[in-house]
Every structure is written in structure tokens, then in C-alpha cells.
Write a protein that binds this DNA or RNA. Structure first.
Lengths: 205, 205
DNA sequence: CTAATTAGGAAATGATCGTTTCCAAATCAA
DNA sequence: TTGATTTGGAAACGATCATTTCCTAATTAG
């Protein structure tokens, strides 16, 4: 999936890379999240990545390559954190609440204003070529599917009634998470978002 | 609220304007909605507005001026359509459903991919100066407040229970509408969005 | 009429954009 | 060693960006 240029774990030949690739991507994804693809200039990126533009282009080919690598990095990091929280609770219903709380916690204060790279990329979908757009759409679909899987789990373990339609509920909760991220851009408090989670959990019966 | 340059209804002196201001703004807001503020170039805008850049700068001062005028135009047009739908139904609860359906109808197909100017502007909030950002935040707040008012109306006319907390429910439904607009960017069907509305209405008891 | 004023529009402006080029430095293979 | 290869980084590139300038056209005021 990643390009040949990126994953040289053991650089057999040539001068070795002196910067941390993932650390650089963390800087890049912060810029992309906050400003969007187009408004994130190479200058913005090189500054946040602590690299010169030459090194950036050597490592990622072009701006699109930086974005796609940062996008994957973002998803991996976020998924790891979420997975840790899901593992901490038992029932399917509790996992659903944990997932919603995960989004709520990300949607307030400074992290709320920084935003979600998947949401902002979906918002900017028209700016990308078909291949990149497909990756963004796929990431959204996976996030929605994850909610659906938790609902199925809850119905299997009895924590969620089998009478509710999992698909439409998953879609509804997914929309809610995306909306929390947008609302978070305008500056929200922890309690405001927590109350949204409590309210939404009334749908998960 | 609008600047002196714009609302010259009766141009006392000088050559009269030969283009329709609101028609031009309709073109501009379509570009801003679909591409976002930064990615909407003056070339994109002049093409969509059927104007030369000179005329654009005469009428709106700068790109920021075009955006702010288009933003207000968008809100006015959308509010008019929404108000028409709200007037068509009776109870507060039915008005809430109508509002959610209004967003759902806008979030599928082509209009879904075009997106909402308020949502995309909130997403790009970091790109604007403080004054413009405040206008965007205010627009979001008004949209949330509108839902709250409908909930209060429903509680007054008995169509919504007085035991539910209107503030947190309004915030939840607001997040849902914003999220529907984001989900709509990735391409959704009418039925998918309609099901989300049905599901959300279970919260409005 | 003339003067003042404003719109329309082409062309030019300086800044910034993403990207490439070029060269020195650092590594491995031989 | 020597050659091949890759990185680091400064500088340059053409394209495009938002904006201004300048001139003509169209209108009102007097």
C-alpha cells in the first residue's frame, strides 16, 4: 500500500535518513487537519515537519504523497488509541459508548479546533484525484463499519436489543461523530460533548 | 450589515451595474461550498459568476468580501426554503422532523457532494480572520439555536415531553445535521439519509 | 453640453505556490 | 580505496495566486 520510497526500513544503499518519518508525519497531519489540503502549503508543512522541501520531496514524492502518508499515519494512530479504549470495556453497548466518548473527547478544546483529518478530507473531497478520493471515502466507510460491528457485537452479547436495525443506527451514530468534529471546530466544552454522547446512547437500547 | 459597496439599490451616480448581484453570488457560493475558501481561486469564482476579476473587485473589494457576501446569501436562501417547509407543518415535533428532513434532502446526491457552506466554512475556520470567523461561528450558533427553539415550541404545544433537556438534545441534533452534510460529501442516497432522520426522531419524544 | 462618478475589462504586478535542479555529504558494495 | 546510491539543503523554476492599474463605456448632476 505504501510506496517504495517510504518504507525503507533497512536502507541497503546510500546515505541513511536522519529524521524520524513518523514524527515528521505527525507534524504534517496537524497542518492538514487544521488548514485542509489546499491551504496547507509546502512551507507550512516543511516547518511543521522540521524538514527542507528537498527532503520532503525525496521522501514523499510530492504534496499528494505527503498527504496520503499523513492520512494513513493519522488513521493508524487514532485507531490504536480507540482500540485501547474499546478493550477496556466489556459489552458491545459499552464499546459503542466508549467509541462515541472517544470522538467527544477529541471534539472539545484545542484538539477540537485542530479537527479530524478524515472529516476535513471528506469535506475537501472535490480537491482530490479519484484514487486519493477513494482512499478518503474508504476511510469513512471503515469508520462507519466499525460502529456497525460494535452494534452487531452488542446484539450478540445481549447488551443491545435485536429489534433495532443496526445499519441505520450505525449510520446515524456515524453522522453524529462527524458532526461532533465539525461542531468542535467552533469551540466546545468537554461537558457539552459528553451530554451529546449521553443523549445518543438513548438510541442504543 | 452589508458593506456600502454592495447594496446600491439606486445607483445615484455613475455607470449602472449590468449583472445580477444575487445570481453572481449564487455562482460564488457554489464554488466556495464545493472547494472551500482557499481552493476557490479568483479564476474559479469569476468563471462561476460570469464576471471579470475587475468587476468582482469593484463590487466586493476582495476575495474575503466575495466570500462574506456569498455566505450571507447562502444563509438567506437556505433559511427561506427551510422556513417554507416549517410553515407547512403544525406541531413543534413535526417541525423538528421537517428541519432534519431538510438537511437530509440536502445531503444526498449532487447537492450532498456540493456540500453546505456553513459546514465547510466551520471546517476551514482556522483560515479566516477573527471577524470572519466570528460570523461563521455565529451562523452555526444560530442554526443550533433554531433547533432549540423548535424543541421549546414542541414542549409548549405538548408534542414533545417536558422531561427532556432541550439544550443537550438540540446540540445532539445539530451535530447530526452537520454530520449528515459531511457524510453527504462521500455520496449517499436519499433513503439512507431519510432513515437517519427516522432514527433521530426517536430522541424527540 | 461638461464634469463627476461608477462599471467593465484587459493587462500587468508582486507574492507565493508546488516542484525541480544541483551539489555536497554520507552510506554500502566491491 | 572507488563507484554507486541516497539524503540534506539551498537555490532556481515556471505557474498560478490575489490584487491593482489603466483605459473605455455608461450613467447622473448641474
Amino acid at each position: 500500500m505504501t510506496t517504495e520510497t517510504l518504507d525503507r526500513k533497512h536502507p541497503a544503499r546510500g546515505r541513511p535518513r536522519t529524521f524520524d518519518l513518523e514524527l515528521a508525519l505527525d507534524g504534517a497531519l496537524a497542518v492538514f487537519s487544521e488548514r485542509g489540503y489546499q491551504a496547507a502549503s509546502i512551507s507550512d508543512l516543511t516547518e511543521a515537519m522540521n524538514l527542507t522541501s528537498g527532503s520532503v520531496y525525496k521522501a514523499f514524492k510530492d504534496k499528494r504523497g505527503v498527504f496520503l502518508a499523513a492520512f494513513e499515519r493519522y488513521r493508524a494512530v487514532r485507531l490504536a488509541v480507540l482500540q485501547g479504549r474499546l478493550d477496556g470495556v466489556g459489552s458491545g453497548r459499552e464499546k459503542v459508548r466508549q467509541l462515541l466518548s472517544f470522538y467527544a473527547d477529541s471534539s472539545h478544546g484545542l484538539s477540537g479546533k485542530r479537527g479530524c483529518l478524515v472529516v476535513s478530507s471528506a469535506n475537501d473531497l472535490a480537491l482530490f484525484d479519484e484514487e486519493a478520493a477513494n482512499q478518503i471515502r474508504a476511510a469513512s466507510a471503515i469508520n462507519e463499519k466499525r460502529i456497525l460491528d460494535l452494534l452487531h457485537l452488542g446484539q450478540a452479547d445481549g447488551s443491545i436489543s435485536s429489534s433495532v436495525d443496526p445499519e441505520s443506527l450505525a449510520r446515524t451514530l456515524f453522522c453524529l461523530t462527524q458532526g461532533m468534529r465539525i461542531a468542535g471546530k467552533t469551540g466546545r466544552g468537554q461537558e457539552e460533548m459528553a451530554a451529546v454522547v449521553d443523549r445518543a446512547m438513548q438510541l442504543v437500547t
